[in-house]
Design a protein around this nucleic acid. Structure first.
Lengths: 207, 207
DNA sequence: TTAATTATTGAACATTGTTTAATTATTGAA
DNA sequence: TTCAATAATTAAACAATGTTCAATAATTAA
């Protein structure tokens, strides 16, 4: 094991340490209340040190962002075994919402937060998101193919389904349903998923 | 006209001046790049002066937030003349998306931005939003009543429709479709609206 | 004109992200 | 081991942020 290799490994370990610490602090204190200084303090380094491992704060957030997409895509893959695309579509919606609700900080970073998307566009790094999108897209395409959904533009239909689940998740995460008690929101959420899949899927049922 | 009355009027004018200036700067430089100092400079006052008229920055944002809801609700009311609830629902979706796309800053403040919802909850001031929500809710209720939508929980169905349009709008506004050219996004958006209303409304058509 | 009230200011505070020159630690070669 | 070179780390500084507050200026009622 050469010294260079070890150096490189240590660098990666340090990056991971920073990211993991940032993540923990984000989850605890909220993303906006975590400064570079707090991250540095938590790992007993000086603030300046962070900048030897990350260009700026955005790059740390971007790293967490990527981890989030790994997680989500892994979940999506677990549905590949479901053969009926209609059932797979429904399950994918449930799974998406579940992911959002159980990983609010991740989800916020991935799909809501400002300043993250710009970073991705610069780096042309939307592979992570693209894979997730394609997973949904092929399912929607199969649904159309088998006549479960009306024959329209595949991307339009995919975007509609994505928008539907993202919309509900983001309204909840960003406190736009805060006037309702939590249990009620959960109830409505469940009902909304059922509503859409009942209505959208029912065309073929009635044929 | 008493002096007190004039004083009060001047205070309101000053508040309006601040809000309007803030709004203009938001639209031009982006919400995050507008500081209290910049607003103060734009109206030739010192930063401290702002705090004689607003408790904090959040209160300025909250004022703009309210204006946004006035605007949106006024638009929604223009659809009251449409008798067929199915058509009204579709038009309301189009209108909502149109509002979001043409007033991205307003929309962001109203439905996406952080720290705004908390303020509303404190002040119990969700009337503005509630009126808009109810407008959608009664339309959905009519659709269910007339059999255009499957009979489910009204709030679940309403939340689903809201989530659908909000989801697409917020994904676009927060740059999650930035990998696609603008015209394509607009095309997909149009297709998605059609997709949902075709599928959801078609139950009765096929009966 | 004067005393009291009100409006406005500018300086100050704490906190933020980020940069940089100086310091410390580590390395590879003699 | 010793020493020069390289790399890692730090503390201090910068500019900008929201916000507060004592001092000043303007306005009011008597």
């Amino acid at each position: 094991m050469s010294t260079d290799e070890r150096k490189e490994r240590e660098k990666q370990e340090m990056r991971q340490l920073i990211v993991r610490t940032a993540m923990k602090l984000f989850a605890g204190d909220g993303i906006d209340n975590v400064s570079i200084r707090k991250i540095a303090e938590a790992i007993d380094y000086s603030p300046g040190s962070i900048y030897s491992y990350f260009k700026d704060k955005g790059e740390i957030i971007h790293a967490i962002h990527n981890e989030g997409f790994e997680k989500l895509f892994a979940l999506q893959q677990s549905l590949d075994s479901i053969k009926d695309p209609r059932e797979r579509l429904a399950k994918m919606g449930e799974l998406y919402i579940k992911f959002a609700m159980e990983n609010k900080d991740y989800y916020d970073l991935m799909f809501i937060a400002k300043g993250v998307a710009e970073k991705i566009q610069e780096k042309k790094e939307w592979d992570a998101g693209q894979r997730s999108y394609n997973s949904l897209r092929t399912t929607v395409a199969e649904c159309i193919e088998k006549g479960y959904l009306k024959d329209t533009d595949i991307d339009a239909a995919t975007f509609a389904m994505w928008g539907f689940v993202h919309g509900m998740a983001s309204l909840i995460i960003r406190g736009r349903c805060a006037m309702m008690p939590d249990e009620v929101v959960q109830q409505i959420l469940k009902g909304s998923l059922k509503f859409i899949y009942d209505n959208v899927g029912s065309i073929t049922n009635n044929k």
